[in-house]
């Protein structure tokens, strides 16, 4: 093997990584210390963009929304898809049908899901019509108007689209649990629930930690669902705006305040970094 051969394999991937990830990342750090806008190269202003970001009430709203999103999504995404995976983890034709069907919302993507659920949860949509028909409610529930209901409706769209995706990851983990463990448990008289808690959950705890990490980060970064349900506005008075939506609103387009948005991006980077480190720590604990 010629000494330069490996580099011929790597040159294209390295160039792409440099141009579209490393350079933009370093540039974001640089811009966050300037008062640049899209049309004007700014000057070095030290940390004043950061203090402007931290003092901005819009940022507080976005931080709160993204944090709540992550805190609510993570447990749902760790537990619910595992239950799904256990249900369909049988090599029969009917179960493989259900497995495929449960994955369909995940391939639909969050934009189409957003459209579908806008229809479902509007004032006269199917959800309200069903509840009214069953006499559970007297007035339609304002799923897409009320600040908190809207955020929870967006979470519902995320869960709907994410269940199948994480289910597949769990199916891979379940395939690695030894069947004899279940047999032993069932000889000891453990019922399905007991088996789930004592065999299934310990057996895929590393996957659970991985999904905790993936889903909480994805939830903190939420964009599509809230954008679709609010028509891009972030809800009444922007009360439902998320961090990603705020970065996009401030940092792109012709009126972009690139310096300000870069400071916001770096703050988001650190928050996600903190979430990741906490979960790596949990993973190390789970490993022992």
């Amino acid at each position: 093997m010629k000494p330069w051969s490996p580099w011929l394999f790597l040159i294209i991937p390295i160039i792409f990584t440099l141009v579209f990830t490393i350079y933009p990342f370093l540039n974001t750090i640089r811009l966050s210390f300037t008062n640049s806008t899209l049309l004007r190269t700014g000057q070095f202003v030290g940390l004043s963009q950061y203090s402007a970001v931290l003092a901005d009430p819009k940022v507080h709203t976005a931080l709160l929304n993204s944090t709540i999103y992550a805190l609510c999504m993570a447990p749902c995404m760790v537990i619910l898809p595992l239950i799904l995976a256990v249900l369909v983890n049988k090599k029969t034709r009917i179960m493989s049908f259900f497995r495929t069907a449960f994955y369909v919302p995940a391939v639909a993507g969050s934009v189409i899901s957003g459209l579908i659920w806008t229809n479902m949860m509007s004032a006269k949509g199917l959800v309200n019509a069903l509840f009214l028909g069953l006499k559970w409610i007297k007035e339609p529930i304002p799923f897409l108007q009320d600040r908190w209901l809207l955020l929870f409706s967006a979470m519902l769209v995320t869960v709907w689209g994410g269940l199948g995706y994480y289910m597949v990851i769990y199916l891979a983990a379940l395939a690695n649990i030894d069947d004899s463990l279940y047999e032993a448990a069932s000889i000891d008289g453990a019922g399905p629930v007991r088996q789930f808690i004592s065999v299934t959950m310990p057996g895929c705890r590393m996957t659970m930690v991985l999904i905790l990490l993936l889903s909480s980060i994805a939830a903190f970064r939420v964009f599509n669902e809230v954008y679709m349900l609010t028509g891009g506005t972030g809800g009444l008075g922007g009360k439902d705006i998320t961090m990603s939506m705020l970065i996009m609103r401030e940092g792109t387009g012709l009126t972009a305040r690139t310096g300000y948005a870069s400071a916001l991006s770096i703050i988001m980077f650190f928050i996600l970094g903190i979430i990741t480190s906490i979960e790596f720590y949990v993973q190390r604990k789970a490993d022992h």
Partner: peptide
Amino acid sequence: PGETVLVSQFLT
């Protein structure tokens, strides 16, 4: 994460 480099990627 993608959002962190969104603004600079847009500029690039």
